[in-house]
Simulated scan of single mutants.
Amino acid sequence: MCCRDRCIRCICCTIITLVLLFIVSSIIFWIIISPSNMKFHVTDVSLTQFNLTNNNTLYYNFKVNVTVRNPNNNIVVYYRRIKAIAWYKDNDFGRVNLTPFDQGHKNTTVLQVLFEGQSLLKLRRQQLGEYKEETSVEVYNDMAVDFDFRIRAKFGKFKSSRFNPPIVQCRRLSVPLISKGKSSPPFSVRNCRIGRSFFVDRDAEAEW
């Protein structure tokens, strides 16, 4: 009986030791890698059509250029799904799937997104009043673009499984309408908001 108890204690100690070693190794690995957050900036916008009819149909042509910067020395990001979502006053009106790509370390990539077509857009009374005022001056406020990614990341020689990072939010954009004969006015670069870390699975984080 004593021999059996010693065996059980030995197995338990071994399992605990292995778990602790794994946790410590993971922490040390993460400290060594110490990933910097990705950087997203809206660098240019172009709006040539934004017409809301009486039957709540929005006709739109909205272009957005966004730079994606990977500032890390030892991390490669594999973008496997890229969905861009256009918003106006908290109402989404356009969705576009972009071509997947791989981004190496210390690399900057430009995403060019074109939202074009028509969709149903039901604004509340106050929002409709704001839309009419903005139409009169041809500048639309509270425009936004979100990016929903599914990625893999390579940390040194270790490659992660696919996961969903936090939604990248490029909000509070004031976008002028470019009428015929008018040139596009200069646009001030805007930062996009990310969660605490781009390299954390938002689904796993939500469970906590």
Rank of each mutant, 00 (worst) to 15 (best):
T99C: 02
E205R: 11
R81Q: 12
C192T: 07
F147L: 10
S161E: 14
S34W: 12
G117V: 05
F187Q: 04
G156V: 15
F115V: 04
E138V: 13
I31K: 11
D201S: 09
C7M: 15
R162F: 12
V189Q: 12
L58G: 00
C7G: 09
R152M: 07
C2D: 12
Q49Y: 07
K89W: 03
C13F: 09
K63A: 10
S36W: 05
T99A: 05
I31E: 10
T14F: 08
F163P: 12
Y131W: 15
Y59R: 10
Y131P: 03
S174K: 08
D146Q: 04
G195C: 08
N65I: 08
N91I: 08
I28P: 00
D203N: 05
P71T: 11
D5N: 10
A153C: 13
N65K: 13
S188E: 11
R172W: 14
V76F: 12
N61M: 14
A206D: 11
Q127Y: 09
Y60T: 03
I23R: 09
K180M: 11
F62N: 10
C2N: 05
L98V: 03
L177P: 08
T48V: 04
C10E: 11
Q169G: 01
T43I: 13
I27G: 00
V24M: 04
R150N: 06
R152I: 03
R196K: 07
R80V: 06
V77Y: 01
L128T: 11
Q112I: 09
T14L: 10
S184P: 04
S36G: 15
K122P: 00
V200E: 15
K159E: 07
Q126C: 07
G104N: 12
V66W: 00
Q126I: 08
N74D: 10
T17D: 00
V77P: 01
T67N: 06
R125C: 03
S161Y: 14
D5C: 13
L128R: 14
L128F: 12
W30P: 00
W30I: 05
G94L: 04
N61D: 06
P35N: 15
T109W: 04
V189I: 14
K83D: 08
Y88I: 00
K89I: 05
S136E: 15
I32R: 09
D5S: 14
L52S: 02
V64Q: 01
G104A: 06
L114Q: 07
M38Q: 08
Y140I: 07
V66N: 00
V175K: 00
F115A: 01
G181D: 10
V168K: 03
L120W: 01
R80L: 08
F155A: 12
N56W: 07
L173R: 02
F40Y: 15
L177A: 05
L58S: 03
L123W: 14
F149K: 02
R6D: 11
L52D: 01
V66G: 01
F199M: 06
K159T: 12
I8Y: 08
Q126V: 12
T109I: 13
S46G: 04
A84H: 02
R80H: 15
H41V: 06
S174G: 08
G94A: 13
K182C: 04
